[in-house]
Lab assay of single mutants.
Amino acid sequence: RSLKHLCRLKIRKCMGRLHLRCPVFMSFLPLPNRLKAYVLY
């Protein structure tokens, strides 16, 4: 697996499933929209 994929998995694990599904939580993250979309992919 690529480093990019492993990073996405780690971020998702740290955030938890409930936060990933909450659009309000995701909108408050201080991340560029492209990065938010990548994490959610």
Rank of each mutant, 00 (worst) to 15 (best):
R1F: 14
S2C: 02
L3W: 10
L3P: 00
L3C: 02
K4G: 07
H5G: 04
L6G: 05
L6W: 15
C7I: 13
C7F: 11
L9I: 11
L9V: 06
K10A: 15
R12A: 05
R12H: 01
R12M: 12
K13M: 08
K13V: 05
K13C: 06
C14T: 12
C14H: 04
C14D: 10
C14P: 05
C14Q: 11
M15E: 01
M15S: 02
G16Q: 15
G16D: 12
G16V: 08
G16A: 14
R17I: 06
R17P: 09
R17T: 09
R17L: 13
R17H: 12
R17Q: 12
L18A: 02
L18D: 02
L18N: 00
L18F: 10
L20A: 11
L20C: 05
L20G: 08
R21K: 09
R21F: 08
R21E: 02
C22L: 14
C22T: 07
C22R: 05
C22F: 11
V24Y: 07
V24L: 08
V24P: 12
F25A: 06
F25C: 03
F25H: 03
F25R: 07
F25M: 09
M26Y: 06
M26P: 10
M26I: 09
S27W: 07
F28A: 06
F28D: 09
F28L: 12
F28Q: 11
L29C: 05
L29V: 04
L29M: 02
L29Y: 02
L29E: 01
P30G: 14
P30L: 13
P30Q: 15
P30H: 13
L31D: 05
L31A: 05
L31G: 05
L31Q: 01
P32N: 04
P32G: 06
R34V: 03
L35E: 00
L35H: 00
K36F: 10
K36Q: 04
A37S: 07
A37G: 05
A37H: 07
Y38V: 02
Y38T: 03
Y38D: 01
V39G: 01
V39W: 03
V39S: 01
L40C: 06
Y41A: 15
